[in-house]
């Protein structure tokens, strides 16, 4: 008998719509939907998708606990043997939802769960410890590669086959260490690695050091009354027409915009360049993303000394971590040179 699989996808892959439909609540369909067809082909007769859960990305991301519980309730009666989510590629909210659902389902039903994501998807950092996440390319162009790898891993987990290393199986490392016997002593292996390193030859460490990429918090602002506050956003706010052509996703640049004398971001002058959320509300009133209007009010009241006369904006939608790092470093250099005291960074 074929294994019973429940598949999780977002509103986009279900054909409901794009960002304008990202707030749809979860629904279940007793059908194979969207990428489910590729899974069906990959599973062959070994497994079948008995139901597909569809949920809007924004709804899930804004109501994680509630949405998770709702979906668990929905899939219970299908008595799944396993769960598959996505693949989400580099879509951040979708990846977060896929990871959260894999974690919740495997905890609740004690069944295997597999997703697929690009390594920079925030869902990876959040859920790689609790879920098997196949490494995928950054866009849906990688569907043909991702689905068979996800299906293969899921079938292995279902059959209880012993897994190889993450690199062999194609999933992202979960931080689990396993003991293994070697013919050679540790000292020998260590010296061999060291010699290879000295020669510039490739070698594989037996224990990767974790990367703690944390920055200690700056001291608090002591004298707010004399502070200069600057605004930065990843929400894509820019002058109408997006003069710097900041990309709607995978931004390669940020903009610097002068707001001297601007008291309010009105719809005739400002909009968003962001392609990763429904732009209706930001286009109608960009203060909803970048609160210039209330900061002007507080500046006038003397809560702080000055709102910095420039704001910086980029689009945080599938943007490479390396790009974001460069933007941040450049922006803060300029802010320090301009005598800014502290920064409010808004994200959608």
């Amino acid at each position: 008998m074929a294994y019973r699989i429940v598949h999780y996808i977002n509103q986009f892959y279900a054909g409901i719509g794009g960002e304008e439909k990202a707030d749809v609540t979860p629904e279940i369909r007793e059908d194979v939907v969207g990428p489910g067809l590729a899974f069906k082909a990959a599973f062959g007769t070994d497994a079948e998708i008995v139901a597909t859960v569809v949920c809007g990305d924004s709804y899930f991301a804004s109501n994680m606990e509630k949405a998770g519980a709702e979906i668990i309730g929905m899939i219970k009666k299908y008595e799944p043997d396993a769960f598959v989510a996505g693949p989400a590629f580099n879509a951040g909210r979708y990846g977060t939802a896929c990871g959260a659902m894999c974690e919740a389902v495997s905890k609740e039903f004690n069944i295997p769960a597999v997703s697929g994501m690009y390594p920079e998807n925030p869902g990876v950092e959040l859920y790689k410890k609790s879920a098997y996440i196949i490494e995928t390319p950054d866009s849906a162009a990688g569907m043909r590669k991702a689905v068979p790898a996800m299906a293969k891993l899921l079938l292995k987990l279902l059959a209880g086959t012993k897994l190889g290393t993450p690199a062999e199986e194609g999933y992202i490392e979960r931080g689990i260490r396993k003991n293994k016997f070697f013919g050679k002593l540790a000292a020998d292996r260590c010296v061999e690695m060291f010699v290879a390193k000295l020669k510039g030859e490739p070698f594989v460490t037996e224990y990767k050091m974790p990367v703690f990429d944390r920055v200690p918090p700056q001291p608090a602002v002591k004298d707010m009354k004399n502070a200069v506050i600057a605004l930065v956003t990843s929400g894509g706010i820019c002058p109408k027409g997006n003069p710097d052509h900041i990309e709607a996703s995978s931004a390669s640049k940020y903009g610097e915009y002068d707001i001297t004398g601007v008291m309010d971001l009105t719809s005739d002058k400002y909009c968003t360049a962001h392609g990763g959320y429904d732009a209706t509300y930001a286009d109608a009133d960009a203060d909803r993303v970048l609160p210039v209007d209330v900061l002007r009010g507080m500046e006038k009241e003397g809560v702080f000394k000055k709102l910095h006369n420039k704001f910086y904006a980029t689009v945080g939608n599938g943007t490479a971590v390396a790009s974001a790092r460069r933007f941040g470093a450049e922006i803060v250099g300029k802010l320090v040179a301009d005598g800014v005291t502290a920064v409010i960074l808004t994200s959608t």
């Binding site: 700056q218 602002v221 933007f327 922006i331 802010l335 320090v336 502290a342 920064v343 409010i344």
Partner: peptide, 8 residues
């Protein structure tokens, strides 16, 4: 990156 130099 901003936090390296300014409170954010």
């Amino acid at each position: 990156e901003i936090e390296r130099k300014l409170p954010v």
